[in-house]
Nucleic acid binder design. Structure first.
Lengths: 216, 216, 216, 216
DNA sequence: AATGAATGAGCTTTCATTCAT
DNA sequence: GATGAATGAAAGCTCATTCAT
């Protein structure tokens, strides 16, 4: 993915000072929570000066945003690859695979994303940054909804399903689980997590209403 | 607060100054977000002196805990009526009705609940308090899951549904929407909100998988 | 003047901390110039904490404003007393007396007033403070113009004089001299200053145009 | 700048980078006020690197001095034409015309000239430079005073007028107006400005004292 | 019990200046 | 000569907490 047209290439080929700052911020956020993460501590942890932080990022919010972007990791690639999976394997397998990646991402950013609600100014600034760059949480929902719609056209998804609603339910489910796991400070094994997510996917796949005996 | 028999008796028989402080804090938390709620603003909003705050609470954290406790306390009551609906009307109607109430509550507490993630100490202490009192987000999930299980026994819900998973999906969906609405600072009409929630319920009711033509 | 309705009573009966801060600011401004006068230095010089500064003044601009107000000293009283002088002594004597007081005030505030132009934000904030309180430099001009108008009605001032213009000329003249004395860092004797000011008053009194021989 | 014969040759035969820096600084000073003119902004505005600034000027102060010098340099030229007007048209017309030009110049330099008062070191250094070159505000006063004296000899100006005092009153009046317009951030039409200045000239021409009925 | 002035450490951000390339 | 990343001190301001009254 190096050298793509991505203007905000925080994953690869990045200035080492930038990288140090982002990693330091991520580490501190996870350990202490946003309200204890000061620019001073970040600079110290990164081993650079506080001035350097403002040389590379307009403000603290922009640094936080970079942390979020870098945390997307696999999830972004999987979202990008989703259109190619239309008609492949089963819908359930595809959704489950996607949701695992989503969860991994969400689990990392819950401490940041939720912290924003503690500071309306930071929240507003984040909104600004996201809209400046034309991205945001709704993007993931839209991409998955588009996938479901494509499968709908193939008859692999119920014709009367609202793709947006189903998509939001799934992402919300994994995000909620991520918040929950953080809240309880529980460190679940990968297996348990996978099972949780699979159960959500399955519940949504089959639906709540009983199906007439026959198929399934 | 001195010497009553209920250690967490923040609702009744409380010193009026205490009560004023707690209510003022709750109002401010909702309005401004944790990081802008200062002891000075709290005292002003409550109409007492800053010093008084420290007569009734050891420190700001203790006051915040009291507020969190009160705010979260309603969790249980929200769903008390649910068991009575088993077998009544349709499952869809019952769930939708429940989700509207849940959303209203969640929308109110998002700024407070999310703020907790900004401060790991506050989060840890809240975790302890809530688990001590046997409340918290898991309660809601359990109650709804119990309702679904009861309906399952009546055959009104698919036999192979995992009630916990479906329940979490729904609550997560509305919570996610609440966070989203706050993030975008959008004030949706009641109608639009109702439609959003109904679409989620419907998506989960019918499921993603296509149903064989015929009944339903 | 103690106990008047003046809401911003910075001269008398003032909180000693306030007074210390104002005096310290005045001293430092005179010595170093605004751009070297930091809130930290002010607090040190005043022998109080930096926090105390912000306890008594909303921001640095408000403190500067207080310094200006306290510097008005006699000038304000003389302006207040001007209406009573209508018809008394000669117009020249009255104006000269007023201008001496104006100069004393202006000489003190030149370093502050001019410094504001170095910082557009501070300038804007000052404009805000002044308009909040309904005061400003135009007030002095107006008061003196009113005096001239009253004398006009008595025939002691030329009927076709524009009072505002004459008033501004005088105040501008002494302000300009104050700037000039500061610029040259010259410490003129009171006598020389008095003569300068008297010459300005006289020039304006008699006018530039030659008078027909006869009276005067 | 290196090794030319004119120590203050900032206008001609100068290194283009130097020139760009000086012009950029002047523009910014006028627009933003001294305290917001940073070396970074200067370099950006000049289209060179921040480092280049330090190749051509020992420090920021030296650059500022160069700018002040250039800005103030016009002082002398403004009034060069005045001696030629002695005995021409009316004294009032001549003064009014001169004051319009003076105002235009003063309005431009107010932000720079006043900013000097924010930094006593800068003020002192400017004082030295200006007096070394024999320029400064006193020059304008002297030139106008000389004009008035010449007219006095022709009987077109009252014999007992102190030319210096009248001259300073006028220049002070327009400078004061310039400061005022900046302070109020008001952008007056040329017509209004012209009227303001004309009223000042007229007030000074006719004087405050009533004239015996009859001529004039 | 209640007040509110005072504290001082800490916050985010800015900026003149240096220096390896 | 020119660059621009890096520095680190210092700016204005905030805030939980204390304490004399």
């Amino acid at each position: 993915m190096a050298g793509t047209e991505d203007k905000y290439n925080y994953g690869t080929g990045m200035n080492p000072t930038c990288q140090k700052l982002i990693l330091a911020t991520e580490r501190l956020l996870r350990r202490d929570g946003l309200s204890h993460v000061t620019t001073r501590k970040i600079a110290q942890e990164a081993g650079v000066s506080e001035g350097a932080l403002y040389h590379h990022f307009r403000d603290k919010a922009e640094l936080l945003h970079a942390v979020v972007l870098i945390s997307m990791g696999d999830f972004r690639e999987i979202l990008d690859g989703l259109p190619l999976l239309v008609g492949q394997r089963t819908v359930g397998e595809n959704l489950e695979h996607m949701l695992q990646a989503a969860f991994e991402f969400q689990f990392k950013i819950v401490p940041i994303a939720c912290s924003l609600y503690a500071d309306h100014l930071l929240l507003a600034r984040t909104r600004e940054i996201l809209s400046e760059r034309g991205i945001g949480p709704q993007c993931s929902i839209t991409v998955i909804a588009a996938y479901l719609q494509a499968e709908q056209r193939l008859g692999r998804v119920a014709a009367d399903l609202k793709p947006e609603a189903a998509s939001q339910l799934l992402l919300a489910g994994s995000f909620h689980k991520a918040m929950f796991d953080h809240f309880l400070a529980r460190d679940l094994s990968e297996d348990v997590t996978r099972r949780h997510l699979r159960e959500m996917v399955n519940a949504l796949l089959a639906g709540i209403e009983p199906r007439p005996a026959g198929k399934n």
